[in-house]
Design a protein around this nucleic acid. Structure first.
Lengths: 154, 154
DNA sequence: CAAATTCCGATTGGTTTAGTAGGATATAAA
DNA sequence: TTTATATCCTACTAAACCAATCGGAATTTG
């Protein structure tokens, strides 16, 4: 039991993003170093990061001395985007069929639908109200440099 | 994928509660009839309802012509209670360790903890703001009888 | 007693999760 | 050019969990 929980995909993915943000000044960050710092399996992270890359959240630099960097400034990265990319759409039940003739004759789904919709909206609302910058602001190095370490583009 | 979802336990359990509320005037409602109306496996529902009973949400009447009735008025039954009883505590990640020395050295859990806490609170807030009465008000028989069909007690 | 029903525990098939394994491709540095 | 370091990609696997099934004991009504 203990349901309504995020899997390791979403959680580890968020750890990766936070780690990349925290080590942005070091240039490309290898997954190996992320895995060591976060005490996670590198191979498993390797399985998650393609989704982050395809979603345009990180960029990869291949080859020796390569690694990953954030594709956007932490201020512009919503936690909700990270989680949805790795966990799939946030929907507490599968059928969000509105008219759904078959569906609704069979069970009391329609009566309870209001619950699932409200839960879904509420979760999305929370994770879309927090950016990566919000999470790393406490761990930021105190030096007042304020160099822009992240890619700037359209 | 498609995570952050309720399992059938919480959903079917809520169907049961709604069905009991809708058929309260018929006296004890057998699980067989619930299962038939909702097109669900009676045996599977049989596995869920002990949790509802132990939690004081329904009462059982054994023997022939027996069945289940709501233990409280629908107005006094929070959807959150039904769901937590069947799904376990609503916590999107397991470790809610606050001080947690070990935990926090290993991963960026503490940095991301804020996210999980806010999601948890938000879900609980939603499901605790809806009562069973809110769900059945649309399907209520239009007759203006307004007899109190549910057990009244301390 | 017979029928209807709750009650209880064990088992099972299937899916998902989390992680492993092995290697192909690309790049920097020696 | 060789070597080491990376990303990249596909498959496989062990364990856990979910949803459901099965069989039967206990209780109550008629």
């Amino acid at each position: 039991m203990t349901l309504v929980r995020f899997s390791t995909r979403g959680r580890y993915g968020l750890y990766i993003m936070v780690d990349l943000a925290q080590h942005a000044e070091e240039g490309p960050v290898s997954l190996k170093s992320v895995a060591e710092r976060q005490k996670l399996s590198e191979h498993y992270l390797e399985q998650l990061i393609p989704d982050l890359r395809k979603a345009g959240l990180v960029k990869s630099i291949r080859g020796s001395q390569g690694g990953y960097i954030l594709a956007k400034k932490p201020e512009d990265i919503l936690i909700g985007d990270v989680i949805r990319v790795l966990e799939g759409p946030i929907a507490p039940v599968e059928c969000t069929n509105i008219s759904g003739e078959d569906c609704c004759e069979k069970t009391n789904f329609c009566v309870t639908r209001e619950v699932w919709v409200k839960v879904r909206d509420s979760i999305n609302n929370v994770v879309d109200s927090i950016t990566l910058a919000d999470l790393i602001k406490d761990t930021e190095k105190g030096e007042g440099e304020k160099v822009n370490l992240f890619e700037e583009e359209a």
